[in-house]
Structure formats: C-alpha cells, structure tokens
C-alpha cells in the first residue's frame, strides 16, 4: 500500500504526554501498532484510553510527544495533506456518532461522495453493500439513526468507518452496550473483515471476550503509560496488581477458559 513500508508500524506513539489542567493522563507513553494486527487497548476507567485514541486520530493535541500514523506526523501536515491521511482512518465512536440528519445509506455514502466524488447513485449502492457486509439489511438503508437500536447503531457506524476501505480502523468500545450474542458476532465480524480487507485495528475495549476472540496483541494502560503490550498470554502473566485482577479475576478466567476450549 502506498506510503507504508510493510515493516513499518502503522502507528508509532513516542513520549506522549497529555494533561488536562493539573491532571496528567499520559506521561511518557509509548505504543506501536503493527500493520494488519488487531491491538486491544485495555485499562481501568479514567486511564485515558479514549484520550489516547483521540490523540492518535488528531482530535486531541498532545502536550508533548510525537505520534506517527502511516509514517507521517499529522501535526506537521497542512490541512490538505492531513485530510488525505485522515481519510485512510476509519473511526467508530463510542456512541456511533451517526449523522442524525441523514439516513443510514446517506451516512455511509457521504465520505464516498465527498472524498472520492462518486455519483450519489453509486455511492448509495456501495453503502448498501457495506450495510449488508456488517450484517444489516439493505432495507435498513432508509432508516434514520434515531430509530435504531444500540447494536444496529454500532453496526451502521462500523459500516461508515469502513466506507473508504481504511488502512487503520479505530474502534472505541465497539461491544459496549451490546448483548453477548451481538458482541460475539461483532468480534467475529471485525476479525473476518480484518482478514478479508487487511486493515489494522486499534481497539479500545473493556470486553474480555473481545480481547480473547479478536485481538492479536493487548496493550494495558496503567500508571499513565502503556504498562505492557504483548500477546494476551504474556500480558496475563505480567506481575502487576491491576493486570492480575483484570485477567485472572473471575470474569477474566471465565473468558479465558471459554476460549481455550474452542
């Protein structure tokens, strides 16, 4: 793919510092995301998982540190170059963030029309394929976001995030608020889409099952930095109180055992 060497990580965060007033969220945080991997980012509430995501996609200007995405530092680019990089991101926000004044197919067709310049008819046709791809019925295409359930909103938002066939997909708690069946289906969906489309995934989550089912590596945010980023087995053996409680607590063990059997 243009612009990225296969060996180069798609995201490289170095020495990131984020402060809100006196409150330091990140202190000297380092993180890399390799091409084609699904990286799960976990951490207790308030450890700045979403802030990290927002920093990487450029919505939050860090106080210090560099963030390179797809080989370039977004903050050094002018608006046009930045937009070119940004359209290679797909972002699924926590609440979906579907445009409420547009119906589903218009939501997904918008970037196709604006960035690629497709005619509306083609864009909406592709939008309906995307809807079907994420498991919605193309008949839902004319529904408005407010008439959808939480699970449908997540799926539609994923379809919009996939609209431009991104190189990196950012997911902010994609399975939060879904029922277990829907959440498992979502994990499976992300994984099959990744295998088929080959993008990298930066996945912020609380969901232990998602970590087991979908993630290649897991990064633990704790003490204002990335405590450890490795495969799940190695992370679970880290000698840290929070990590031990998280992965080897009753829920962690339940999630782990259900995936060992498979």
């Amino acid at each position: 793919m243009s612009g990225t060497d296969d060996q180069e990580p798609v995201i490289r965060v170095k020495g990131l510092v984020n402060r809100f007033g006196d409150h330091t969220v990140h202190e000297n945080l380092d993180l890399t995301v390799e091409k084609g991997e699904i990286l799960g980012v976990v951490g207790g509430s308030g450890t700045g998982k979403s802030v990290l995501l927002r920093s990487i996609i450029g919505l939050q200007r860090p106080n210090e540190g560099t963030i390179e995405v797809l080989g370039t530092d977004l903050s050094t680019l002018d608006n046009e170059a930045r937009s070119r990089v940004e359209r290679r991101f797909g972002v699924l926000f926590q609440q979906g963030a579907l445009f409420s004044s547009l119906n589903l197919q218009e939501n997904i067709a918008l970037p196709l029309i604006e960035h690629i310049g497709l005619p509306r008819e083609d864009a909406e046709y592709l939008a309906r394929i995307k809807l079907s791809l994420v498991g919605l019925s193309p008949e839902d295409a004319l529904k408005t976001p407010e008439s959808l359930s939480g699970g449908m909103i997540k799926r539609a938002a994923l379809a919009r995030a996939l609209a431009l066939d991104p190189d990196i997909l950012f997911l902010d708690e994609p399975t939060a608020g879904l029922d277990p069946i829907g959440a498992a289906a979502f994990d499976h969906l992300i994984k099959t889409l990744r295998d088929a489309l080959g993008f990298s995934v930066f996945l912020v989550t609380h969901d232990l099952d998602t970590l087991h089912a979908a993630c290649d590596r897991v990064a633990v945010l704790s003490q204002k930095r990335v405590l450890v980023a490795d495969t799940l087995e190695n992370v679970a053996q880290t000698d840290d109180e929070w990590v031990q409680e998280y992965f080897n607590g009753p829920r962690g063990r339940a999630a782990a055992s259900s995936f060992v059997q498979e």
């Binding site: 079907s132 791809l133 004319l142 099959t192």
Partner: peptide, 22 residues
C-alpha cells in the same frame, strides 16, 4: 487467499436484494 476471502465475503454480503423500491 486474502483476496478470495474478500471476494467471498462481499459476495455473501451482496446475496440479498440491494435495490430499494422507492
């Protein structure tokens, strides 16, 4: 293999009526 997977995935996604009768 990855391209086959993609094509099959899209094929199954398109195995529904994609036209809307408006």
């Amino acid at each position: 293999k990855s391209q086959r997977a993609l094509i099959m995935r899209i094929a199954s996604a398109m195995d529904v009526s994609l036209t809307l009768d408006t």
